[in-house]
Simulated assay, not measured.
Amino acid sequence: MSLWTEVIINLAFAWLASVGFGLTINVPHRALILCGVSGSAGWIVYWSVNQIGVGRLGANFLGALCVGVLDIIFARIKNCPVIIFNIPGIVPLVPGVPAYQAVRAMVEGQLSNAEDLILRVIIVTVGIAMGFMLAQSIGEIFFKMRRKRKNKRNLV
């Protein structure tokens, strides 16, 4: 399969996952397309960084950072709370399969395998949380500087 075919398939399924989850949690229809854009952009960043050879933590961090920054921008554009875009946008990055496998391994008594899988889930979760925190900080700093600049212009 060619690289472009893989990219298109990844984009399409990440967009569908984000929009589908957005429909499930009743995201306003005016925000659904941008939820899909956010989710697919975050997934493509994750996928690309993972293809380069960066670990799971770095790939999830950069994917979540991309989602977080885009969500702040989209929230301003659509005049909606950021959480409307955050939740569906992060769905493609959530480690559902390793979490399921960890629970299954625990039930079957394979504690060593379960520990490895739980560690994988924790690493991914920490990467996502760090990406969101940095995106929020970047957004706050940017808009604070923007307000200061506006206030200086109004005073002059």
Rank of each mutant, 00 (worst) to 15 (best):
M1L: 13
S2N: 14
S2M: 09
L3W: 12
L3N: 11
T5M: 12
T5C: 07
T5G: 08
T5S: 10
V7I: 13
V7C: 04
V7E: 03
V7A: 09
V7T: 03
V7P: 03
I8D: 10
I9W: 15
A12Y: 11
F13N: 01
F13H: 02
L16R: 12
L16S: 11
S18W: 03
V19P: 13
V19F: 10
F21V: 02
F21P: 00
G22Q: 00
G22T: 00
G22W: 01
L23K: 15
T24Y: 15
P28W: 12
P28C: 09
A31W: 02
A31H: 02
L32R: 14
I33Q: 07
L34M: 14
L34Y: 13
C35K: 03
G36L: 05
G39R: 06
G42H: 09
W43E: 09
I44H: 05
I44C: 09
Y46S: 08
W47P: 07
S48P: 08
S48Y: 10
Q51D: 01
I52Y: 12
G55P: 12
G55F: 13
A59V: 07
A59Q: 08
N60K: 04
N60V: 01
F61T: 01
L62R: 03
L62Q: 03
G63P: 11
A64T: 02
C66S: 14
C66W: 06
V67L: 06
V67D: 00
G68C: 10
V69R: 08
V69K: 10
L70G: 11
D71P: 05
D71R: 07
I72T: 06
I73K: 14
A75G: 04
A75Q: 07
A75C: 06
R76K: 14
R76S: 07
I77R: 15
K78V: 00
C80Q: 05
C80R: 08
C80P: 01
P81I: 07
V82G: 03
V82F: 09
V82N: 04
I84Y: 01
I84S: 01
F85S: 04
N86Y: 11
I87P: 00
P88V: 00
I90N: 01
V91N: 00
V91K: 02
L93Y: 04
L93K: 01
P95E: 01
P95S: 06
G96P: 09
V97I: 15
A99E: 01
A99N: 00
A102Y: 12
A105M: 10
M106Y: 08
E108T: 05
G109V: 12
L111S: 06
L111R: 09
L111V: 05
S112I: 08
N113G: 01
A114G: 03
E115H: 14
L117C: 06
L119V: 08
L119W: 10
R120N: 14
R120T: 10
V121I: 05
V121S: 04
I122Y: 13
I122H: 14
V126G: 02
G127E: 01
G127N: 04
G127Q: 04
A129N: 08
A129S: 13
A129T: 11
M130G: 10
G131E: 05
F132E: 00
M133P: 06
S137I: 08
S137T: 11
E140C: 02
F142E: 02
F142T: 06
F143S: 04
F143N: 04
K144L: 11
M145L: 15
R146H: 08
K150F: 13
K150T: 06
N151K: 14
N151C: 08
N151E: 13
K152N: 07
K152I: 11
R153F: 10
L155G: 02
L155W: 06
L155Y: 05
